[in-house]
């Protein structure tokens, strides 16, 4: 869009956690909160990728609205009054993270991402010291077929960051989802081994963007896998700058 922006009419003021803030039209609650140093927990959101809205950790209360809204998917409107923290929200967030631990097999003590994992960090942040729900203990595969990277379904939280980075940034769209409910899973091409994918360029973006130990480099031992995600906003910017 090259139309000149009229600051007076295109800017919006709102209130987040008792702090008056302003933003440009079209910005989401999450973006504005982060710009103003207000922390809202997220797992599926990733700056530079399309919004997914699946983890539901970023739910916030908006005055006058009976329903909670996902901060990552809610565009700011004039005069909004938002609270990002409340005992109720914290309780919901804790439950959501507990559900993620119960869903698949997270054995942090033997995980390559131990100590560098967004799910684990989130549990600490929310004060989760145990999981009240029954663990599912599903029998899941580890796809070791790629010569440099590994997909361990035991650790996947289905945030689809890998799917989106692969389709939207790398342009390969190697990854997608199959199945419904708790049986949903990440697949490569037409549900074949990653190593046999004809579309994967082996760029490694999915590995770096994956919040957990689901996507890792091969040859890493417990706690050795660290991720770099700083490349993403830069690549997004480059893409958008292209004529």
């Amino acid at each position: 869009m090259n139309t000149p922006v009229d600051i007076a009419t295109e800017s919006i003021t709102l209130r987040i956690d008792d702090k008056d803030v302003s933003c440009r039209k079209g910005e989401t609650v999450l973006q504005v909160a982060r710009e103003n140093g207000i922390d809202i927990p997220t797992l599926c959101y990733m700056e530079g990728l399309t919004v997914w809205g699946g983890c539901r950790l970023c739910m916030v209360e908006i005055a006058g609205s009976p329903k909670l809204q996902a901060a990552c998917a809610t565009v700011c409107t004039e005069g909004m009054i938002i609270s990002t923290q409340s005992p109720r929200l914290e309780n919901y967030r804790r439950m959501i993270v507990e559900l993620l631990f119960a869903e698949r097999n997270h054995v942090c003590s033997v995980c390559v991402s131990n100590g560098h994992c967004e799910l684990q960090t989130m549990a600490v942040k929310l004060g989760i010291d145990h999981v009240r729900f029954a663990y599912r203990f599903p029998h899941l595969e580890v796809d070791n077929s790629h010569d440099r990277m590994r997909m361990d379904h035991n650790r996947c939280i289905l945030c689809t960051r890998c799917v989106r980075v692969c389709a939207e940034i790398e342009g390969a769209h190697t990854k997608d989802i199959k199945g419904r409910g708790v049986l949903a899973a990440i697949i490569h091409d037409l549900d074949q081994n990653w190593g046999e994918s004809s579309t994967c360029t082996s760029c490694g973006k999915c590995v770096n963007i994956c919040p957990t130990g689901a996507l890792t480099h091969r040859g890493t031992a417990v706690g050795e896998m660290t991720k770099k995600t700083t490349f993403l906003p830069y690549l997004t910017l480059m893409r958008e700058a292209q004529p």
Binding site: W52, F133, R180, G181, V182
Partner: peptide
């Protein structure tokens, strides 16, 4: 609901499973 959940969001995907379990 558990078998029909699309699996996109955590509360429904895993929540329906755990409610069913309970």
């Amino acid at each position: 609901c558990m078998t029909e959940s699309c699996g996109k969001c955590v509360p429904c995907r895993v929540g329906t499973y755990e409610m069913h379990e309970l």
